[in-house]
Computed example of a mutant assay.
Amino acid sequence: MSEARRVPIEPQRVDAPLTRSAVFLVLTVHDTPEALATVRGTLGDLADVTKNVAFRDLAASLSCTVGVGAALWPRVFGPDLPRELHEFRTIQGAAHTAISTPGDLLFHIRADRRDLCFELERQLVDLLGDAVTVADETEGFRYFDARDLLGFVDGTANPVGDSLPEATLVGHEDPAFAGGSYVVVQKYVHPLDAWRALTTEQQEAVMGRTKPDSIELDDAAPAAQKSHKTLATIVDEAGDEHDILRDNMPFGAPARGELGTYFIGYARRLWVIERMLERMFIGDPPGLHDRLLDFSTPLTGSAFFAPSATLLESLAD
């Protein structure tokens, strides 16, 4: 890694504002010199391509964050990997499993206009051409007042202010990759008929928050069944709480019976998201899994590293 890349640099817009529309595009890359050259060139030009589309309506907050998987990273950036980067690991619980699915590239496109998301995705797909294969393409949308399809506000616990970069951006602990962020994505589908069969009080007990106004409910006793809110709260051995940034979006096609939530989490430390998923799928204590998983089935699971914008732009050189 060159010395220029060790200097604190400009991150990608992992902290882009909540928008009305999003596209989550996961791709696999063909292992040929031509395909890799195409990917390097496209990633190096990503900022310019995004800017050209965003200029059509600057008020629409178009942004695009790209993440690179562990298998692709050395073929694009060289042998040194971000310290915690590895492929998403399957988490097997007694009742539910967080599956691992292929993914070399993630494009997280966000805007307040669906047409801008569409246009940027179209241009990126044209640039990449037959260098890639689509593993998953999901269109997300804002649902009422930032609620998921289960009816609860999503992202209430996101860090804000000075705590946002502290929670999401790699720093001095891995200086060669400072300004980057680990990203995990999972596509969940919900059997809404079963969820709606619960009373509001039962749903709130599962989530750990009130449904109308997202107020936290008291935690369960240490050995009792914990809520989703409690299981997703990560505290280390020193008693310090570690946040992640969620930019989840509902997606769906009611006529096909496809209704779900696309989970995307940005974190300074990959282990924080992994421990959260272990607590959800295995349980804390083991055997008492997150009851939300009885109504949320993951169809995908992939991990990436979103390098700094400066490192991406260096590929254009």
Rank of each mutant, 00 (worst) to 15 (best):
K229Y: 02
T138G: 02
G208V: 04
Y262A: 05
L127D: 11
E84F: 08
P17N: 14
A255N: 10
E87T: 15
S100D: 11
A194Y: 14
I282W: 14
D218H: 00
A224K: 06
E274G: 01
T19G: 14
S63C: 12
R5K: 11
S2D: 15
N158H: 14
P74C: 06
D213I: 07
T133H: 15
E121Y: 00
R114P: 06
L127P: 00
F107K: 04
I91P: 01
D148L: 06
D80P: 00
E166Q: 15
A70P: 13
L43N: 06
C117A: 03
F281N: 02
Y182C: 06
I109F: 01
A255F: 02
L36T: 04
L292G: 01
A178Y: 04
A98E: 00
G69V: 07
R291A: 01
E241I: 03
R83Q: 12
L288Y: 10
F152R: 03
E274A: 03
V125Y: 12
L85N: 11
P307Q: 06
F177W: 15
R279I: 02
E278T: 06
K226R: 09
T200R: 08
S61W: 01
F251D: 08
V23P: 07
R110D: 00
T32Q: 07
T156C: 01
T138K: 10
V206K: 00
G44H: 12
G78N: 05
E173H: 06
F118K: 03
K226E: 07
Q12K: 09
F295H: 13
T133F: 12
H289I: 07
V184E: 10
P165N: 14
N52I: 03
R147A: 02
F77I: 02
E258R: 08
D130V: 04
F263T: 01
P165L: 13
V125C: 11
A232W: 01
V206D: 07
V7R: 01
L120S: 07
R110Y: 00
D294V: 00
T200C: 04
D57Q: 11
L46Q: 05
R142A: 11
V184N: 11
Y266S: 00
R40C: 09
H172F: 10
N158A: 13
V189A: 11
K187H: 14
S314M: 14
S61D: 15
T261S: 15
A59I: 08
E87N: 15
C117V: 03
L43I: 05
P33N: 06
A167D: 12
L164T: 03
T230Q: 15
G78Y: 13
K211E: 12
E201G: 01
L164F: 08
G41F: 09
Y262L: 15
R5F: 13
E119R: 03
Y182I: 05
A197W: 09
F55W: 14
I9Y: 00
L150H: 01
A60R: 12
R268H: 14
A309R: 07
L169S: 08
